[in-house]
Amino acid sequence: MATVELRFSALPEHVRTARLVAAAVARRAGVDEAVLDEVRLAVGEACSRAVGLHESHDIASPVRVLLIEDEKKFSIEVGDGVPGGTTAAGARGAGEAEGAAESDAEGEDEMGLAVISGLVDDVEVTAGEEGGMIRMSWPTTTAATIP
């Protein structure tokens, strides 16, 4: 089970909440202070992307964020509810069909993934029947373990 699980309505105003919660849990898990900005940015990008996908595919289900504290690493999983269509190519198809406004969103989606892959060494983007998932992890220091 995730250390902390967060579900939020796919609305832009909730992405900040996800960033704050993720950073707080990461700090507690022992992620280096210098890396917390990267955690905050990466989870924000993943959540923004999920919110965009839910909006463009008219999906009412919430965005799911799992914050998992392991012995030596801290992992974040951000899941969307778009079946098999979370790749940039899938978003592009929707963008072309729905016009210029969607094309802008698609560009931001690709830039979001570019930022995540530039920031995080251990990242995996998958697409499944129940939706897409971005998994990211960071090493933790044992010094943060409370005796």
Binding site: R19, L41, G44, E45, S48, D104, E108, M111, G112, V115
Partner: peptide, 13 residues
């Protein structure tokens, strides 16, 4: 205090 890719997109626009 914080800038993400959405903000970058706006600046590029």
């Amino acid at each position: 205090d914080f800038l993400d890719s959405t903000g970058l997109g706006v600046l590029v626009g």
